[in-house]
């Protein structure tokens, strides 16, 4: 019998996010017959982090400067707009060790880079294709419908801005 891992007296910051766990749950719902798997299994030795909420203008060098404080960075993959191939506000940072990745979750996730609070999440590993945004217009999905103006991420959400423009055209006539 293995001794269950001791629970800490306060929550740990080096756990995968609700997003990852939620994604796993959904998959299990669709395939009930599948053997119940520990959602953490794919992350037990993960050395990669997904990094989100970056400004489109943040460079690899800036990311490297901050993230190497947690250990040597093995690889850095910038998230790109599927069509323009320009940065679209996320990246993957791969370390050499699992511990460095956990430390990064604990010490860097939720702090500022380029004056924005960045988000980090443990990731099972980069695969070709994942560097591109999955939004309709090529960027990240969250930048499609965003109603707030974010100068670091291309202004309003693209679908939202498009919709606004269409509505204005209807109201005031096109090509104002």
């Amino acid at each position: 019998m293995t001794i269950p891992e001791r629970r800490n007296t306060v929550e740990r910051l080096d756990r995968p996010s609700a997003y990852y766990i939620g994604k796993n749950k959904k998959r299990r719902h669709n395939d009930e017959s599948e053997e119940q798997k520990d959602p953490m299994e794919g992350l037990r030795h993960a050395t990669t982090l997904y990094v989100g909420n970056l400004s489109f203008y943040t460079t690899e060098e800036q990311i490297h400067e901050l993230f190497s404080k947690c250990g040597e960075v093995k690889r850095l993959v910038m998230g790109l707009d599927r069509y323009n191939k320009t940065p679209c506000g996320f990246c993957f940072v791969e370390y050499y060790t699992h511990q460095d990745a956990l430390d990064c979750l604990k010490y860097v996730g939720g702090t500022k880079l380029d004056e924005r609070i960045i988000r980090t999440d443990l990731d099972p590993g980069f695969e070709e294709g994942r560097q591109y945004g999955r939004g309709k217009s090529g960027g990240q999905v969250r930048d499609e419908y965003r109603e707030e103006y974010d100068p670091g991420r291309g202004g309003y959400g693209r679908a939202y801005a498009e919709e606004q423009r269409r509505r204005e055209d209807e109201e005031y006539g096109p090509g104002r």
Partner: peptide, 8 residues
């Protein structure tokens, strides 16, 4: 000891 939650 508490390096796992810097906010706490």
């Amino acid at each position: 000891i508490m390096d796992f939650n810097r906010i706490a």
